[in-house]
Nucleic acid binder design. Sequence first.
RNA 1: GGGGGUGUAGCUCAGUUGGUUAGAGCGAUCGCCUGUCACGCGAUAGGUCGCGGGUUCGAGUCCCGUCACUCCCGCCA
Length: 593
Amino acid sequence: MNKYRTHNCSELRVKNAGENVILSGWVNKKRDHGNLLFVDLRDNYGTTQCIVQKNQPFFEELEKIQLETVVKIIGFVSKRSADTINKEINTGEIEIQIENFELLGSCKELPLPVFTDQEYSEEIRLKYRFLDLRRKKIHSNILLRSKVISFIREEMTKLGFMEFQTPILTSSSPEGARDFLVPSRLNPGKFYALPQAPQQFKQLIMVSGFDKYFQIAPCFRDEDARADRSPGEFYQLDIEMSFVEQEDVFNVVEELLKRVFNKFSNKKFLFNKFPRITFEEAMLKYATDKPDLRNPLQIYDLTNIFLREDVSFEIFKKLVKSGSIVRALVAKNTKDKPRSFFDNFDKWAKSEGGSGLAYFTIEQVEKISAKGPVGKLFSTESIQEIMKITGAKVGDSIFFACNNENDVLQLMSVARDKIAKELDLIDKNSFAFCWIVDYPMYELDNTTKKLKFSHNPFSMPQGNEKDIDFKNPLNMKAYQYDIVCNGIELSSGAIRNHKPDLMYKLFEIAGYDKKDVDKKFGGMINALSFGAPPHGGIAPGIDRIIMLLADEKNIREVTMFPMNQNAQDLMMDAPSEITIEQLKELNLQIKKK
RNA sequence: GGGGGUGUAGCUCAGUUGGUUAGAGCGAUCGCCUGUCACGCGAUAGGUCGCGGGUUCGAGUCCCGUCACUCCCGCCA
């Protein structure tokens, strides 16, 4: 028999009444009635009410015990009387009559309450994460994470995939995020990098003939944090497959995500078959390549309206003439909204650094007209044209923004969310997945004005190799795709370029000559020239999947031991200073400020 | 690197236009209480109002600076 317990704290039922039992756990709560003491004992599985009367010799000792102390309770199970049953917990029909107890782990005065729904500061939560993790919500989030990960492993295995580990110490890559670097003791002056993703390794696994790979892979990127982005490290469900086209990857991922989301959430799927939206279409309709499709609002281009003679909105007309564009959103049935409703959006848009949001409401007394500060600047015919383009009806309002393309898109993307939230148009009980496809191979770097890879440099350009228009690289599309759910980008993926010659050509366009490519990606290119299968894959973010399933907005709520925004672990005190000896051994010197 | 928010007791927060001794709930300590399940009742302790400077007869409150946490932008192929 186990020394510490015969049962866990969620196990005992009426049928156990009369049995002698031993339970161990944390003192979750005490209710002290002076001559009668209730102790709620908690472990990973649940809580059990234990009770002791004053006549027991250890009564006073137990009465004074700190919450969160770990104790072993020895006693017997007794059935509760009907009026004292607690239906909230699954051991609520019984209680333990304590016959003795043993202190297993004492507890100092708590820096934060454990048994409470109260929110408290992240600083204190992260410093005492081991206490924070005892709390119900986050404890169950972490359990959910564990279950999801093992389910994913099972399902991937069923789908014929093999899990392989890839190195954690690897080489720095020139593209992409900032690397975390690790100095090499045996190779003075040289550094390893932690992998931003096992990108090259998973391709090498394909070249090695393993056909279907997956891994719950740690990824390291030294970039600034966001609510949905841990600083430092995160996990991807890394997938790669040989002899596949884009659709084959989609089928696997769609099937897997459906199984996972159906198993771990009651929310419904808005689309049973995930819609495919081209990058171009997404940017036009949603002004972002990670649209929240729960939001029914669409964006329309109204630039041409401002070239019309019968529109006298001179500020916008002037901007349009000098190259600005106009994009609009329709807010249905908003004619009765107060003036403040509209002005607040304009005020908000200005606070976003934009030029504001103009608006009018379509009305019809006899003729169709526009109401609002700029309404009279539009003729009936121009309003009718706007209604044709946008599908707006009498009683709807139009919000529009005019600026250069970048700024308009940025504003409209956020405005679309904000207006939908304000009008309560988003069904919170659903998942809206979609694929974003046909990404451009290259884009212009805003600061350097040079061409760069818009996503992964290893992606395969679309079309027959002979027909690819290398002269107009900005027109080149790639077999590059993203999967998005509820406005959250879960993953990017691509069919890879497995042809070294083509790869050199593509890198040349981005400004890397053959020598650069050989130096930076030599291992990869070399491998591809020894018989590489066509292959492709994807890597959905595990943390974000759990966030969606747990309905959490912050990634730290689904991460056991996260770092804070400044990439510090307040509990372990990382990063920390190291000794002179360690530095010497690594041939490093710290430059003083 | 830039912008916003927050910072008052161990924890969560209140604190009016600048005005006497900075409050509450939870927690802690002590006492009372035999059926609670957020038990109840009474008492006590607990404060560099993040830090530094300034304005003022007087600053938790106003101003300047700074630090910490957080959200966003940049960044994240």
